[in-house]
Design a protein around this nucleic acid. Structure first.
Lengths: 205, 205
DNA sequence: TTGCCAGCTGACCGATCGGTCGGTATGGTT
DNA sequence: AACCATACCGACCGATCGGTCAGCTGGCAA
């Protein structure tokens, strides 16, 4: 069974950087240090292998999110900021996997999207929304803003920034130097619109 | 030369929905109603055809943006809202092309990203930033917010929402019904944080 | 009429694709 | 000892890949 993991590791990396159809089973087998026939011994087909990779990647993301959530302390707003910061950190650390999942979305397959929303983003989303609702009940955030909408806004900062960063950093007269700083600024901007009173964090420079 | 356009049209649609390596020249030729050899008569290779498709798609997007920008009237904030609304509209109308370009980003190829930032997003970004700076000078938006950062935030609303919509609409207890409404709400949320004074638009329900 | 050339085609090429098959090495059970 | 399941492999399969090429066509210039 350990050989199985080697195959998944190799496939994940290759699928992420070249797409499903951009990688052959031969290449995966070679990267895993085994023969092509062995790949088919463990997985019924290339499609089955790909689905297994996506599934494992999703579970990995969920695990990371849960691990992050365990850090919640008493201050909802600080937890929210922490949450977003660690989310970006994990996104960057596992860029291959995230790209793999993001590309899955660009195919516009509705069944895949449904599966993703149930297995990954659902938990992510619910957890984030609860955090925001907690901040609302604590009087730190405006209550007339839909918590679900706010949650998506927070996620969009990290994920979108991660996706378009290669473009952003080449933009004319760009104000961006580090993606972490850009995300922090966008988050502050968002919070300013949601805060119950005045400025929440030190955005003014 | 008109046959050339038929090829590009067919290729664009197929590349967008299946990826470069997910489509064969035979399929493209069949969709265009010509023979496979004719495709190679007009384009040196599959890669050249793909690059031509991407290039044309980018030019199309730029043209749409320029067309939108011509509508600017005296009110910067209203123009900004208009701009974003039409941008989403065009994104949805040309979903195939947008997906094609977005998938290009998930490959993380730096040279492609640089080309995209110069040929498409550069103009988009600059135009949007000027609009925001105009609103700042007119006293409608806070001046301590970086205009470039705000521009990216506005773009992220439409593009990210478009990308993850298939997932979002399946989320548990989702507050989203129409992507246009979700985008409008997120835009309002963002503006609330950037507005010089009080609420800008009728977000309170 | 002739020549020419772009547009287009069917037939074909070697390479590679996903996938199969027969067989081997290993290690645990009986 | 015989047996069996699992992991693994080299060799092979038909199909399809991107790409080539000789030749057909119709229109246009000389």
């Amino acid at each position: 069974m350990p050989g199985c993991v080697k195959i998944l590791d190799a496939a994940e990396s290759l699928f992420a950087s070249h797409g499903v159809d951009g990688v052959s089973i031969r290449e995966i087998a070679e990267a895993a240090g085994i023969s092509k026939a062995t790949v088919f011994h463990h997985f019924d087909s290339k499609e089955a292998l790909y689905q297994a990779v996506v599934r494992r990647s999703c579970k990995g993301i969920v695990a990371l999110v849960a691990q992050m959530a365990a850090r919640e302390d008493g201050n909802p707003l600080a937890s929210l900021a922490d949450y977003r910061r660690h989310d970006l950190q994990e996104t960057l650390a596992h860029a291959d996997v995230v790209r793999l999942v993001l590309r899955e979305l660009t195919l516009g397959r509705d069944d895949q999207a449904r599966q993703l929303s149930e297995e990954v983003f659902g938990e992510h989303f619910v957890r984030l929304r609860r955090l925001i609702e907690k901040a609302q009940h604590a009087g730190e955030l405006k209550t007339d803003v839909d918590a679900g909408l706010a949650a998506v806004s927070v996620v969009s900062i990290n994920l979108f920034l991660f996706l378009v960063w290669p473009v952003l950093k080449h933009l004319p007269d760009t104000p961006f130097v580090r993606i972490e700083d850009a995300a922090e600024s966008m988050f502050t901007l968002l919070l300013d619109g949601m805060a119950r009173s005045g400025s929440v964090s030190g955005s003014q420079a």
